[in-house]
Design a binder for these strands. Structure first.
Lengths: 325, 325
DNA sequence: CTGAAAGCGCTTACAG
DNA sequence: CTGAAAGCGCTTACAG
């Protein structure tokens, strides 16, 4: 495959390269010329190099920063972003922060200096540095899955979801409930979702609630479950994610506890696998595809200076399994 | 955040921009000058724009083409690639083909015309067009997870893995075995893995083996399992992936079949969830992190003109669950 | 060891 | 409707 440049195509079509550029960017090109160019392009399979648009007034690249490439939910979100942007003629540039906040900040800086058209940010944790960076960013930013009072966000309804789940579990009147959660630095999951759960439980009169926190790994779920069981009696475990619930299942089996007879378990995520556990995991599914697509739509609207809501809230669905009494 | 360019940094450091460029690309810079530049860079958090290296002799961007962003295994592979490349000072540019072969070809063309340093390709299916594209590519390509006789590949040992699994299941002397597979266009899984399984089974004297094929989805697993059960007696199901096995579990439950008493089930993938199924799924785990890292190492070696094996085979581990009699 | 100049593949006023 | 020219942020011979 020979590498064609715009100059090559221009020469082959017998026009100037400005015309080829206009052809691709929707400028004036006479119909006859347009057809001639099209023929040449088809012939050589030419596509312009998006990254060479160094002085274009706007880039057609959207940067996406995610906390990890290794999560089911992230997979759903970026799949849906990528699909939508591709349809709209944009390129997706994905950067993983690999769970490191310093890398996340670097990624944002990098995207800004790359002069991408817009940034979709799924943050590990929003710090003051994020606020400063975003406030001074010459490029629009949409924050995903995390409340962001100083800008535009598209979020899951973590509080309400937590509340529903708390109420659902609370209705069985468990005496001793534990929350297997995430550190506070992740506001959406660590704080908001947890608060929803607590309030939901309290609305049913549950008062003995013990809190644990760790990271997002399967192992962390196992570990927290163990700590919880060793810290006193437990009749229900509400886990911040399905993955943590998987870990809890593992530990409960080791401790010889039956689900839900001895201990009820619930998670958040709605992974396909959850319905295969025995008993089926009671979980709650956010519409991650919608979150991805709406975020992508929103960033494009910002780029086009169209009005956008400062906050959009995505729906969820509680999936009753058989793991709660 | 102001956007600094190399010219800004040059001015602020009181040197020419060639010197800044050399600073970043390991050229000669006097120690004193180097320190002065470093101070300025630290001050402004400047990073050069990798995509503006239009006429660099080599790019520090590695393109990665994956069939989907929505798979556990892909997640593991790209996580490990991204980590390794970052450590080595390279950028990862991920492009998803979203299960469309035409898009995959486009992605490869695109990366070539972007003039990335190298391409890591996880292909849906290697066609003649791929061969032509790769043969004429001015840029090195490493094919991942798929045999590639016309170039460099890093692959799972699909045949041997299939064989081991076939033997493992075969040892229980199941009378009627079905293979829930993937279309032939995916050679690695659709053909090689299947052949390994068949040979493994035959080595144990199993002869009644019926073959089914579909796509990689959970639903496809359900559907194939249903077809299999309706097509005649079944005492063992070997599934091309864990996800398909999850679908089979679902269908078997619907049909009132017990695992493994009525039907043995096995998969490939080694997902964490597999050990939580009841009974635990017998599966086989490829070392996807190793595959990612070795592929990344290999592409860098190719770029540096260091010798590389034409084919590297990654190990696997059979994880006996309780789903095989 | 360093800088001025030309060039990478593209876009954008501007003149025609 | 179109092209020559200047410019985007960078790299690379080349001369000093």
């Amino acid at each position: 495959m020979k590498k064609f440049t715009m100059a090559d195509i221009a020469e082959m079509s017998g026009v100037g390269k400005s015309t080829i550029s206009r052809y691709f960017n929707g400028g004036y090109v006479k119909e006859a010329t347009r057809e001639r160019i099209q023929a040449v392009i088809r012939e050589c399979g030419y596509m312009p190099n998006s990254f060479a648009r160094l002085n274009a007034r706007e880039s057609n690249i959207i940067g996406v920063v995610v906390p990890t490439l290794n999560s089911k939910i992230t997979g759903r979100v970026i799949t849906s972003i990528d699909r939508y942007l591709r349809e709209q003629g944009y390129e997706t540039l994905i950067k993983s922060s690999d769970h490191q906040i310093a890398l996340e900040l670097d990624n944002i800086r990098r995207l800004i200096s790359l002069n991408v058209g817009g940034i979709l940010l799924s943050s590990i944790s929003i710090t003051d540095q994020h606020r400063e960076l975003i406030a001074n960013s010459p490029i629009p930013v949409v924050v995903m899955a995390q409340e962001f009072d100083a800008g535009i966000s598209v979020v899951d309804d973590d509080y309400q979801a937590g509340f529903e789940m708390g109420k659902y579990v609370g209705k069985s009147h468990p005496e001793h409930v534990v929350w297997l959660g995430i550190t506070d630095t992740d506001r959406a999951v660590g704080i908001v979702r947890r608060q929803g759960v607590l309030d939901g439980l309290k609305s049913c009169g549950v008062s003995d609630i013990r809190l644990f926190s760790g990271d997002y790994s399967y192992e962390s779920g196992q570990k927290m479950a163990k700590e919880a069981l060793e810290s006193g009696p437990v009749t229900a475990m509400i886990c911040a994610t399905d993955r943590l619930a998987f870990g809890a299942y593992h530990t409960l089996a080791q401790f010889g506890k039956r689900i839900p007879d001895d201990v009820s378990v619930a998670g958040f995520g709605g992974y396909d696998e959850s319905e295969l556990l025995s008993p089926e995991l009671t979980t709650l599914k956010f519409d991650s595809y919608a979150l991805g697509q709406l975020s992508a739509e929103t960033i494009l609207r910002l780029i086009r200076n169209e009005p956008v809501p400062v906050k959009q809230v995505i729906g969820f669905q509680l999936i009753p399994g058989k793991s709660v009494k």
